[in-house]
Amino acid sequence: MALYAISDLHLAFNSDKPMGIFGEHWFKHDDKIKNNWLAKITDDDTVLIAGDISWSMKQDESRVDLDWIDSLPGRKIISKGNHDYWWTSISKLNKMYENTNFIQNNYFTYGDYAICGTRGWICEGTKGFSEQDEKIYKREQIRLELSLKTAKDAGYNKFICMIHYPPMNDKFDESGFIKILKKYNVEKVVYGHIHGPGLSKVFNGTKDGIEYIMTSCDYIDFDPVQIM
C-alpha cells in the first residue's frame, strides 16, 4: 500500500497539443508515464497527481485523458493545475470514477493521513506579482485552509498536501501557504508546475520540518516517485 506522486501529465489524447515541442524528452511522454507506472504501481497503491492533467478545455473533451488515468493501477487522487480548464463542479467530478478522486475544498485519506490541497498560485515576492495575483493568492490560501480544517474537524491530525504551484517564491521566502502548512503541522507537500530551465532552481527537500517534493513529469523523468 505505497503512496506515490507525479504531476503535470499534460495529456492530450483529444486535442492537438504534442508535448514534443517542449523538448525531445517529452516525445511520447504518455508512453513513458504508463510504462513506468505499470512497472511499479499496483491496485493496492495510491498515486497523488498534483495538477495540469489535461490540455482539454471542456470536461467532455477531457474524458479520454481522465479515463486513461483511471485505467492505470491504483487509487488516484487529483488536484487542479493552472491548465485544467476542463475542471468543473467537484461533486460532478467525484461521481465519475470509483478509484479516481478530485480535491477542492475537501480531503481524502491514505491510512491515518488526510490528503488535502488546492491549486495554489504564484507567491508574493515573485517578479511581476500584481494586484490580481494577490487576490488569487489570498483566495487559494482560503481554499488550502478549508481543505485542511475540514480534515482536522473530522479528527485527522496527520496531513499530506498537494499544491500545483510551488508554495514559495524563487527566493524560498515564507509565504501565506507555508504559514498555513506550518499551522496544521503538514508533513509532506507535493507540488509541480515548473518545467525546463526553472527546474534547476526548485526546492526539493525538507525545511522547517516540512518535506517538499517536486513532481513535475520532466523533473522526475516521467516516473512516479514513492513518497511513503
Rank of each mutant, 00 (worst) to 15 (best):
D112E: 12
G120V: 01
M96P: 00
P197L: 03
K201Q: 12
S89Q: 07
R139P: 00
K149H: 12
K127C: 04
G209Q: 11
Y97T: 03
A154P: 01
P166R: 01
N185W: 01
D153V: 00
N101Y: 14
M162F: 01
G196H: 07
F108W: 04
D170H: 10
N106W: 13
F129G: 01
Y110Q: 03
I115G: 02
N157A: 06
S89D: 14
E98P: 04
I160A: 05
D133K: 05
N82F: 11
F203K: 13
T88Q: 11
V202D: 14
D173C: 12
K152M: 13
I103W: 06
Y113F: 14
C161N: 05
E174L: 15
Y107M: 03
K207Y: 04
F159V: 03
Y156F: 10
L199S: 14
E174T: 10
F108K: 04
H83K: 04
T109H: 00
Y97C: 07
I142L: 15
N99Q: 13
N185I: 02
G192P: 04
M162G: 05
E140W: 08
E98L: 08
F108A: 05
Y107V: 03
N101H: 15
G196M: 07
I103Q: 07
D170T: 10
Q132T: 15
Q132V: 14
A151D: 10
E131W: 11
I194D: 15
Q141G: 11
D84H: 08
V186M: 11
V190M: 06
E134A: 15
K135Y: 14
D84T: 04
I178T: 08
V186R: 02
E145N: 07
G117W: 04
S130P: 01
K92R: 14
P167G: 10
K201H: 14
G192E: 12
K171I: 05
S147E: 11
T88K: 13
G120M: 09
E187N: 05
I115F: 01
D84L: 03
H193Y: 08
L181I: 11
Q141T: 00
K95A: 09
I136C: 07
E187D: 12
D112N: 06
G120S: 06
I142D: 15
I194M: 12
D133M: 11
G125K: 08
D84C: 05
R143M: 13
V190N: 02
Q132W: 15
G192C: 12
K182M: 13
I136M: 08
S130W: 08
G198S: 08
P167S: 08
M96Y: 10
K179L: 08
K207D: 09
G125I: 04
E124G: 12
K179H: 11
S200G: 09
V189W: 00
G111Q: 03
D112I: 00
S200I: 03
I160P: 01
I122A: 13
A114G: 05
I103P: 00
D84K: 02
F177H: 01
L144S: 04
H195W: 06
K158I: 03
G155A: 07
A154Q: 09
G176D: 06
C116D: 08
E124H: 12
T150G: 02
T206N: 15
